[in-house]
Design a protein around this nucleic acid. Structure first.
Lengths: 239, 239
DNA sequence: GATTTGATTTGATATATGTCAAGAACCATG
DNA sequence: CATGGTTCTTGACATATATCAAATCAAATC
C-alpha cells in the first residue's frame, strides 16, 4: 500500500471552493475567509488505498476533504476492526486526535481524493480572533458527537434491515446536500466495510440488500445503487 | 417526576474543588481559574430522577458534574431508547447541543447530584482569552468523540460477555481516577439501563453478570459489585 | 410494618444473525 | 484477451441473544 502523497504548492482558494457552505468557512466575511485560506497551506492528493493518517501517528492537522471518499477505522488489539465512519467532500476529519495529540484511528482513501490540510495550532489561534470561526469549529465537533450517538442508537437497537435502510438514506442525504442525485449513486465501500460499520457480517449485508431489493425499496447491482422508494424506506424506519 | 431544581446563590470555588484535575480548569494559572470560577455562576441540585435537560430544549450551558451520577439517552421516534452514556463527577455534559443549539438527548440524574452550570457563550468568550482553556475545551470534546468510537467498537463487534467486562472495567477506572475503590462500588443504574447502553436486553445483562460471577471474575449482589480479578477480566477482553 | 410496585434472576423456547462453504461475478494485471 | 484474485451472492446449518413467563427479591409508600 503505497504512501504516495503529492503535495502541491498551490493554495486552495476557499473563496472559490464550491464546498464553502459545508466546510469550515461558514458564515465568515470575505476578509475572514481569506485568513482561513491562508492556513490551509497545502492540498494533498491520495490514491485509493492510501492512508491519510494512521492510528498512533502524531496529531498536527485537521483535514477538509475536497474531493473523494474516505473511511475511518479503529483497530482492536485482537485484530478486530471497526469502521467508524465514511467521509465525503466538505467533511472535516481528524477530530479524534485532539484528545491525546495522536490519532486514534486510521483514515484511508476509498477512491482517489484530495484534502486541504489545516494545522490545528493555527486553527486554534485564528479561531481566537474570529468568534464565528471558533463557534463553527465547536459546532463541527459537536455534530460529530451527535452523529456518533446516532450510530450508537443504530448499533444498539436496530435490526439488520433497519441499519441498512438508515445507512443508505444517510448516504442519500449527504449526496443530495452536495448537489448529487439522492436516489442514484455508487457505493464506494465493500460489503465487508458496510458490515463493519453497521455491526454486521458481510453476508448479512449482502442478504439484506437483496431483501430490500425484493421489497422494491432499492435496486442494487454491484456498487450501483438506486433508491426506488425513499419515503417508503424512511417510514420503514419509523415503524 | 418533579423538577425541583434549587439554585443556590453560592458560587463554587473551582480553586477549592477536588475535581479540579478532572474538570474544565486543568493547567490554568490561579488567575485564570478565578476567571473560570466567575462563569460557573450557579450550582444546581437534582434529586434522583430529575432531568438536567431534555431533548429539544434550548442550549444555554454546559454542565460540570460536581457530585452524583447521570445518564444520557436518545429517544427514537418509535419509542426505542438508547442510553448513550453514564456520567460521573468531574465530567462535562451537554456537548451534543452545540451542534444545533438544542439538546439532542435527555440527561437524567441517577442519584442526588449537583452540577456547575457554565453558560456556553461566556465559555467561548473566555476561551478566546485563555488559550489553554480553549485547547482543553477542544480536548474534552475530542475525548467524547473517542469515547463514542470506543462504544461503536463495543456495540459493533463484541459479544455480551466482552461488553459487560469492558463496561465494568471502564467504571472501575473512572472510580479509581476519582480516588474511590477500583474493585468495589455500587452500580448506580438498573440492568435495563446497562442493557440499553450495551445493546443488550436486561435478561442478557443479568445472565451475563451471573456468568462472570460463576467464572470468579466478579461478585455481584444486587447493585453491589466487587471486581475479584481485574487482570483476568482485562485479558479476557484482549483474547 | 404491611403492601404494592418495580427490579432481578432463571428457565424454556424462538429468532436473527453468524459461520462455513461453494459458485458466480467482477476487476486488475500481464 | 486471458488469468488470478477479490468481492459478492446464496444455501445450509449453528449459535448467541431475544422473547416470554414465572418466581424471588428489594424498595417505596401508606
Amino acid at each position: 500500500m503505497q504512501q504516495s502523497i503529492s503535495k502541491t504548492s498551490l493554495k486552495i482558494a476557499c473563496s472559490s471552493c464550491n464546498l464553502r457552505e459545508l466546510c469550515l468557512p461558514v458564515n465568515l466575511s470575505p476578509a475572514e475567509v481569506a485568513l482561513v485560506e491562508n492556513l490551509t497551506q497545502q492540498k494533498r492528493s491520495f490514491r485509493r488505498g492510501d492512508y491519510l493518517y494512521r492510528s498512533g501517528s502524531k496529531f498536527q492537522s485537521l483535514y477538509a476533504i475536497r474531493t473523494g471518499f474516505f473511511k475511518t477505522q479503529v483497530l482492536h488489539e485482537d485484530g478486530r476492526e471497526q469502521v467508524t465512519g465514511f467521509q465525503m467532500a466538505g467533511e472535516i476529519i481528524g477530530l479524534d486526535a485532539i484528545s491525546t495529540d495522536s490519532h486514534t484511528c486510521d483514515a484511508i482513501a476509498l477512491e482517489d481524493s484530495e484534502v486541504c490540510e489545516m494545522p490545528f495550532n493555527s486553527l486554534e489561534e485564528l479561531s481566537r480572533d474570529i468568534p464565528s470561526l471558533q463557534h463553527h469549529l465547536h459546532k463541527i465537533m459537536s455534530r460529530e458527537i451527535v452523529r456518533d450517538q446516532g450510530i450508537m442508537l443504530l448499533l444498539g437497537s436496530m435490526r439488520a434491515e433497519e441499519r441498512l435502510g438508515a445507512f443508505l438514506l444517510n448516504l442519500s442525504q449527504r449526496y443530495a446536500a452536495r448537489g448529487y442525485s439522492a436516489s442514484s449513486f455508487q457505493l464506494r465501500m465493500t460489503r465487508q466495510e458496510i458490515g463493519s460499520y453497521l455491526g454486521l457480517k458481510l453476508e448479512t449485508v449482502s442478504r439484506t440488500l437483496s431483501l430490500l431489493q425484493q421489497r422494491g425499496f432499492i435496486q442494487i447491482r454491484n456498487k450501483s445503487l438506486d433508491l426506488l422508494d425513499i419515503p417508503g424506506l424512511q417510514s420503514s424506519l419509523k415503524a
